[in-house]
Amino acid sequence: MAEYRLTTPISGEEARALRVGDVVYVSGVIVTARDQAHRRALELARKGEEIPVDLEGGVVYHCGPIVREEGGEWRIYGFGPTTSARMEDLEAEFIERFGVRMVVGKGGMFQKTTEALRRFGAVYAQHPGGVSALAVASVRRVVAVHWLDLGVPEAMWVVEVDEFGPLTVTIDSTGRNLYQEVLEEARRRAERLALG
């Protein structure tokens, strides 16, 4: 279990060095996207159109923040992760098309994403669920927002952060998926319980 401090953009070499259990703090620019933003980005890319952000070496964060406009500037009041499972159908293509090196969320992802992370040399990291105020403390500023028509939580927020974390690597580029391992063990243990 090693601890890393990474700055965006993250290189393929940096991402491939990460292993399940490592703790990472990220500085630089990260981009939020929930299912609606994933869907829109992929629709544009499939038509050969540009998306408004460069995600090469980027960190995509599954997050619907609390944001308020104050004096012409956006201020973030809540910045914890949302459930990543909702993006499972979209993430593999998202990683492949945009060159994302780190997907951050909570609750883990499944086979298709695990395979894409392995193929393209990227990782999935868990931000502790609900740990929102601490994440706000790592926010330097909102750089930009795209697709506000999707609603505040679903829009794509481009955010500059300083030591964003702790992020725990839970799916790495070797194909290890910690959630899967923990759940398989839990199912084995459940079978051995004497109930009633």
Binding site: C63, G64, G78, G130, V131, S132, A133, P166, T168
Partner: peptide, 24 residues
Amino acid sequence: SILEAILRNLRAAEEGGLPICQDT
């Protein structure tokens, strides 16, 4: 590490007058 982050988050929320979780 998760539980320590959760407990630090509780202090950060109370001190900053911020919601504990962004999903209110």
